[in-house]
Design a protein around this nucleic acid. Structure first.
Length: 503
RNA sequence: GGCUGCGUACCCAAGUGGUUUAAGGGGACGGAUUGCAAAUCCGUUAUUCGCCGGUUCGAAUCCGGCCGCAGCCUCCA
């Protein structure tokens, strides 16, 4: 099975062939930490987390770099507005970002370099470009000269001349040789904080946007590496400029594959801080706020249920649908746990290891079906990381397992053979889910009240209800159940008694 | 004006030339099960893929035109 991925550079799905055999280097553009992150910021990390998991699953040794830009104009302005130190504010926001990503299961980042801690590398990079005639100094600013780069525009297929003029009006510095030239270094302006001032050979100032990424990517991954990713909105100018800087400096290919994920929208509009309409809902779209009301796995599930290149229209409706869908797996795993008496979240068995002697006819059928579904899952992932297709397969696996439990009457019979088969099936479901960062642990019971007495209270009501039902006083029992349902506690009467769960 | 994408059922969404007279999820409805529910299982919900033409033995998938939506060209994941 071979992995294919869509390369923005060629606008085609290409066969994946790593630069170094068995190793993969990935660079994802991370946040500029000047405002709390919103849900859209989670999309890249979640998808690339899956990409790393899958490549690791395919036995590649993966190095994943996600940068933090903490020296930047808007950050300076925000710190100024809040009367705080720039780097202190940056660290705060970075911590919030890391916590939120961790909660959503993003845990495989190898390096999170900060721009402020790579000033020397940036200066060296700029120096290199100046020496090679690709950049020039004007009054303490350094600009990249696009006219000296024949390949400029190759990522987004654009020529500087065709771009709408006027938008840059007032922003175009007279000192620039071409309107498309961009800053590699910005001279310090009066009143700017000391933490944003660095000494460079051509004067005091700070890096321009773009240069930190090519400098840090090359430091951690080498001059040529495999995958560079980011949001669609970064294609131009950010990634175009990164390519220009890096390739003019090294004379070799920067990133082999460019992957861009779709943008998160709200009411079909991109989530953008500068949009006044969006400003009203921004707060509710902050990850920290969303995590207070929704469990992180649902958010992750929602993101992965569409293809990474498609936009996601975020809303309560889609979130609710994602949560319902996830519930199917959670209930199934609970069922597996009950029936097999083993922890499905720590799988010890997989279907691949089942032997014929351990199977009855029904088990054999399930095994065949699951083997087939497992292959389909991997095929979906091989096809440009089609997580939506992969999740569809997981649902089919869940259906097959539920059917098996029903047909073999595993909830009322205790034959060891089918239970083992179910354990293995659960193991495969969970380990495939793990490739997507799902089903990593038992969902935490929602805490309602901190005194821990809730379970006892529910048990009490369940018992009272049981007594009334035994006395055929169904009205009382139904009342208890209905009222609990209203509180978000669902009762399920099974053959072996009543179970309950909190949604 | 230039450059990108996208438009699949009530909603979300996969599928980019035949293996699909279109996966999967949510919702709704009907059935099995249940005292009744919930959960689970079975079934129904697109002969059709924005519209119009073209290429082809064959198109949701390729080409052209039109309509609609979004992104970039200015900070942006």
């Amino acid at each position: 099975m071979t992995l294919r991925l869509y390369n923005t550079l060629t606008s085609e799905k290409e066969l994946f062939d790593s630069v170094k055999p068995g190793e993969v280097g990935i660079y994802l553009c991370g946040p500029t930490v000047y405002k709390p992150s919103h849900i859209g910021h989670a999309v890249g990390p979640v998808i690339f987390d899956v990409i790393k998991r899958y490549l690791t699953f395919k036995n590649f040794k993966v190095t994943w770099v996600l940068n933090v830009t903490d020296v930047e104009d808007k950050l300076i302005a925000e710190a100024e507005a809040q009367g705080r130190d720039m780097l202190e504010l940056a660290r705060d926001l970075e911590r919030q970002y890391v916590d939120a990503m961790g909660a959503m299961g993003v845990k495989n980042i190898d390096y999170m370099p900060r721009a402020s801690e790579h000033i020397q590398e940036i200066i060296d990079h700029i120096n290199d470009l100046i020496e090679k005639g690709h950049a020039y100094v004007v009054e303490g600013d350094v600009y990249f000269d696009v006219s000296k780069d024949e390949d400029y525009g190759k990522l987004t297929n654009r020529k500087a001349d065709d771009q709408e003029s006027g938008t840059r009006e007032g922003l175009v510095k007279a000192a620039k040789r071409n309107p498309g030239d961009f800053a590699l270094w910005k001279a310090a302006k009066p009143g700017e904080p000391a933490s944003a001032k660095y000494q460079a050979p051509w004067g005091v100032g700070r890096p321009g946007w773009h240069i930190e990424c090519s400098a840090m990517a090359m430091k951690y991954l080498g001059k040529t590496f495999d995958i560079h990713g980011g949001g669609l909105d970064l294609k131009f100018p950010h990634h175009e400029n990164e390519i220009a800087q890096a390739e003019c400096a090294t004379g070799q290919t920067f990133a082999k594959y460019w992957m861009h994920h779709g943008l998160t929208r709200f009411n079909t509009k991109k989530i953008a801080k500068s949009d006044p309409e969006m400003a009203k809902v921004m707060e509710s779209l902050q990850i920290a706020n969303l995590l207070k009301q929704h469990d992180p796995e649902s958010l992750r599930f929602l993101i992965l249920q569409s293809h990474y290149r498609s936009p996601i229209d975020f809303s309560d409706e889609v979130l609710k649908a994602a949560k319902s869908g996830l519930g199917t797996f959670r209930r199934l795993l609970e069922r597996v746990e009950r029936v097999t008496n083993s922890d499905p979240y720590k799988p010890e068995m997989q279907i691949e290891r089942m032997r014929d002697a351990e199977l009855d006819p029904r088990g054999r059928d399930l095994l065949d079906e699951l083997m087939h579904l497992r292959v389909r899952f991997l095929e979906e992932m091989d096809d440009d990381f089609n997580t939506a297709g992969a999740i569809a397969v997981l649902f089919e696996i869940a259906n097959a397992m539920n059917k098996y439990i029903d047909a073999a009457k595993l909830e009322t019979h205790s034959d060891e053979l089918p239970r083992n088969m179910l354990r293995a099936a659960g193991g495969t479901l969970v380990s495939l889910g793990n490739v997507l960062g799902l089903f990593e642990r038992r969902p935490a019971a929602r805490a309602i009240g901190d005194d821990g007495k809730l379970p006892q209270l529910v048990e009490l009501l369940v018992n009272v209800r049981k007594m009334s039902r035994e006395a055929k006083q169904y009205a009382i029992g139904d009342h208890i159940r209905d009222e609990l349902t209203k509180l978000g506690i669902t009762l399920e009467d099974g053959k072996d008694g009543t179970r309950w769960r909190i949604d």
